[in-house]
Amino acid sequence: MKKLFGLMIAFLIVQSAFAQRAGGFRFGMDLGAAVPQNGGIGALLNLEPQILLKDNLAFGVRFGVAGLAKDVTYYNISEDYEGEVSGNASITGTLNYYFNKGNSRVAPYLGAGFGYYALSSVRIDSNDIDQEEVGNLEASFAWAPMVRAGVELGKFRLGAEYNLVPPSNLQNLSGQVIGEAINQYFGFTLGLTIGGGKWGK
């Protein structure tokens, strides 16, 4: 196993010495802040292997985890309450187009994806609500699109993304829908890319 891992690292390092070319393999890692649409804060981590379909077009599979603290809305209560989400996981197919003709180490990009999101349960953080009355937001799953943009500076990357995940229903113990949690969120990331060649000469 260690030998295989070492061979993979050596392969990526060798690829990094040459210019970006179709057929090249890249591996990216992004870490950053996650901001739910209706307020709150969180963090995210994305791991993404990619293959270059063209010199400036990459297809990838993004494995993402986002931990969020966000507002939960109750239909019959005038206030919003803060819910804590332990973590949302996703697997997303992606396409990135890089605006680079091979003469610069700076490569702005636009990207999009579509994937499967596993949404964890929510715990309500309030002493003013009877927990037995409001129930819980159970774990659920959803298909959703994602759009993003950013710039690569050599092997480093700055990016912003928006995950259009549909809301989840909040049910009480009788099974009635009494509220919802908004799952859409922005991500602002700093990342690193290994392999795939280099931008510019």
Rank of each mutant, 00 (worst) to 15 (best):
K54N: 00
N46L: 13
N56C: 05
Q37S: 08
E48W: 13
P36D: 02
G67E: 00
G32A: 15
G39F: 02
G67F: 00
E48M: 12
V65C: 04
R62M: 15
A58S: 04
N56V: 03
F59C: 08
L68Y: 07
G28P: 01
L31I: 07
V65T: 09
L44G: 12
N38G: 07
G42V: 05
L68E: 03
M29I: 15
A58V: 00
F63L: 15
N46C: 12
P36F: 03
L45M: 13
G28M: 01
G39P: 07
A66Q: 05
N56I: 03
I51P: 03
L31T: 05
G42P: 01
Q50C: 10
L52H: 03
F59V: 09
D55M: 00
L47Y: 11
R62W: 14
V35R: 01
L53H: 10
L45G: 12
N38Y: 15
V61R: 00
I41D: 00
P36T: 06
F63N: 10
V35H: 05
G40R: 11
A66C: 03
A58D: 01
G40I: 06
G67N: 01
P49N: 12
F59Y: 05
D55G: 01
R26A: 08
A43D: 01
I51V: 12
V61C: 03
L68F: 06
L53E: 04
R26L: 12
A34R: 10
D30V: 13
P36Y: 02
N38F: 15
L52W: 04
L44K: 09
A58P: 02
G39H: 04
F63R: 08
L52Y: 03
R62A: 14
V61H: 09
G32Q: 14
K54L: 05
K54Y: 01
L53W: 11
E48K: 13
L52N: 04
Q50H: 05
G67R: 05
G32Y: 14
F59N: 04
I41N: 02
V65E: 05
K70H: 15
G60C: 02
A66N: 05
M29T: 15
N38S: 14
G64L: 13
L47F: 13
F27G: 14
G42R: 02
V35K: 05
N46H: 15
G28R: 07
N56Q: 06
D30R: 12
L68P: 07
F27K: 08
L47H: 13
L57V: 12
L45P: 12
A58E: 00
L53D: 07
G32K: 15
Q37F: 04
D30I: 13
M29H: 14
Q50G: 08
P36C: 08
D30N: 14
A34C: 10
L68T: 03
L44V: 09
A69L: 08
G67T: 01
L57A: 11
F27D: 11
L47G: 10
K70I: 06
P36W: 05
G42E: 02
G67Y: 00
A69T: 09
N46D: 14
